[in-house]
Amino acid sequence: MTILTFTLLLLAGAYLAGLVGSLTGLGGGVVIIPLLTLVFHVDIRYAIGAALLASIANSSGAASAYVKEGITNIRLGMFLEIATTIGAVVGALIAVYTPTNTIAILFGSILLFSAAMTLRKKNQEALLVGSPAANKLKLNNSYPTKDGEVSYHLKNVGAGFSIMTVAGIFSGLLGIGSGALKVLAMDSTMHIPFKVSTTTSNFMIGVTAAASAVVYLQRGYMDAGIAFPVVLGVLAGAFTGSKILPGMDARVLKYIFCTAIAFVAVEMIYNGYNHKF
C-alpha cells in the first residue's frame, strides 16, 4: 500500500468515525482506535495518539456551538476538570507500565460499557434542591429549553468528582474522551439534566484529552502521517453529523451502532487476550 492509498482510506474511515461519533454522542475517538488497529494493523500506541487528537478536534468543534447556546455549565466543567486532568496525567503515567494487550482489553471493556450507556434512559428531570456542596461551589445553574429557562440543582458532588477522576484515568490510559463515564457521573450521580451533562461532558473532553496528549506527543505517539487524515476526516464527519442530526431520528442508528460497537469491543478483548497487540 502506498502512502496516498493509506491516507485516502483512513480519511474516509475517519470521516465515518466522526459522523457516527457525533450522531451517537460517543465521539470520534472510540471508533478511530479499532479502525486503526483492527483494519489497518497500526500499533495501538499510534492509534491512541490519533484518537486523542480526534477527541480534542471533536470536543472543541462541537463545544464552540453549545457554549454559545448557553447550555454548557462552564463552572461545573471547570470544577470537574480538576478531577479529569489529574486523572488523565495519572493515566498517561500508568500507560508506560501497562502492556498493550491489557490496554486493548481495557479498551474493549470501556467500549461495551459506553455502548450500554448510550442506550440507557436519560435523566430529563431538573432537581429543585441541591446539596450544600453544590451551593457552595456555585454549580447550580439554568439552561434554555423550548419552554424557557429551566433552573436545576445538583447533589452528590463528591461521588461525581470521584467518578470523574476515574474517567480521566481511562481517558489518559486509552486516549478516548470517556464521554460515557463523564455522563454517568453527571447524569446518574449528580442528577444533572442530560442536555446539560452531555454538552458539559463534551466541553470537558478537549481539556482532559489535551492533558494527556502533551505527554503522548513527547513520547512520539503522534505520527504526522496518521494525524493528518484522522484530524481532517473526524472534523469533517463531526461537522456533517451536527448538520444532519437535528433533522433525523437517531434512535435506530444508535441501536445499530451500539450493536456494531459491541462486536468490535469483543474482538478487541479477544485479540488482546490472545496477545495480538
Binding site: L53, I56, A57, S59, S60, G206, V207, A209, A210, A213, V214, L217, M222, A224, G225, A227, F228, V231
Partner: peptide, 13 residues
C-alpha cells in the same frame, strides 16, 4: 502537520 497538531492541543489549554 505536527505544528497543526500542536495548535489543536493548545486550543483547549
Amino acid at each position: 502537520i505536527q505544528l497543526g497538531v500542536m495548535v489543536l492541543i493548545a486550543t483547549p489549554i
